[in-house]
Write a protein that binds this DNA or RNA. Structure first.
Length: 295
DNA sequence: GGTAGACCTGGACGC
DNA sequence: GCGTCCAGGTCTACC
């Protein structure tokens, strides 16, 4: 079956899919040439389906590989809307971006939305998998987690959904390390899964929280394995841009842009984007660093 | 509050 | 093919 979902303009499916690396992490698959974003999704009743998202005149067309009842249709609509951030109005950010040459193209290119997973649990696990490793390692670990612990897609059992917290919680550190090569991250992912599965940690409530960004940041930092970079990245996925995800690349980029290549720390990265206030995360993320690529 | 060292893996490199 | 070194954030212990 198929659903048509409208997006707050401007909207570009490729801009969302390529907003950061998430589309390369299982169970996402992004076919750039065909313009199709696929995702193997869990529905509440435990059913696993594949969504294929394509552009449509006012938003997207979502194809699901099977019939859905009314409740499941609502779930797919809700998941796709969240994942693609369809409802987000970025008008205030675009108004500021027009005044900055390095951000002048974001509105025309409909940049600003960040692709996210249906659950904050999945995004938190994936964010932990981005830390202290190369991107190839993140892809490998996410693929292994999905393949080893995710429920299979009925029509194509070689593909799997992202593991549910309960499934990971029932595992143990030794198995996780052996089967997914998470290394020292295994106890972090296991602890997170157990906290969520037991109900001790309601990560999904963060999506609609009215708490100030600073308080949410502190709560994310309380998760073992989530430090300053990861918490800021997760806040960005929650639509809060008050903190910068400062990693080694960010320091290098700011060093080249404003400090003549001299080594800089987190303070210099913060200072470079402080003037963007509540939009600093987006300004940093979509800043046009391309002049340095050509150098 | 700031800092040093450990954590773990895969890739690059030299032999 | 093997061994060594390095990069990448976070945690813990210590000052």
């Amino acid at each position: 079956m198929e659903l048509f979902l409208t997006a707050h303009p401007p909207f570009s499916l490729p801009a969302v899919a390529e907003s950061h690396g998430w589309a390369a992490l299982a169970p996402f698959a992004w076919d750039e040439e065909a313009g199709v974003l696929a995702y193997v999704a869990h529905l509440d009743a435990g059913r696993v389906v594949e969504m294929c998202v394509r552009k449509a005149p006012d938003g997207v067309r979502v194809e699901v590989d099977d019939d859905l009842n009314a409740d499941e249709e609502a779930q797919v609509t809700h998941q796709a809307t969240w994942m693609l951030d369809l409802d987000h109005d970025l008008t205030p950010f675009y108004a500021l971006a027009r005044e900055e040459p390095r951000l002048a193209q974001v509105e025309a290119q409909a940049k600003g939305r960040l692709l996210r997973s249906p659950t904050l649990f999945e995004d938190t696990v994936k964010t932990i998998l981005t830390t202290n490793t190369a991107w190839s390692g993140t892809i490998r670990m996410a693929s292994a987690l999905v393949a080893q612990f995710g429920d299979p897609l009925p029509g194509d059992p070689a593909r799997h959904a992202f593991p549910r917290p309960e499934r990971l919680a029932a595992s143990d550190e030794e198995t996780l390390r052996a089967e997914t090569r998470l290394g020292y991250r295994a106890p972090y992912v296991l602890g997170l899964a157990r906290s969520v599965a037991s109900g001790d940690l309601d990560l999904e409530a963060f999506k609609s929280s009215d708490l100030p960004a600073g308080q949410l940041y502190k709560e994310l930092l309380a998760i073992k394995g989530v430090g300053g970079y990861a918490a800021a990245h997760l806040l960005m996925l929650l639509g809060r841009y008050d903190f910068l995800p400062i990693d080694s690349w960010a320091k290098t980029a700011v060093s080249r842009e404003w400090h003549g290549g001299e080594p800089v720390g987190a303070a210099e990265v913060e200072a470079a984007f402080a003037c963007w206030g509540e939009w600093k995360g987006l300004a940093f993320w979509f800043w046009d660093w391309s002049p340095w690529d050509e150098a």
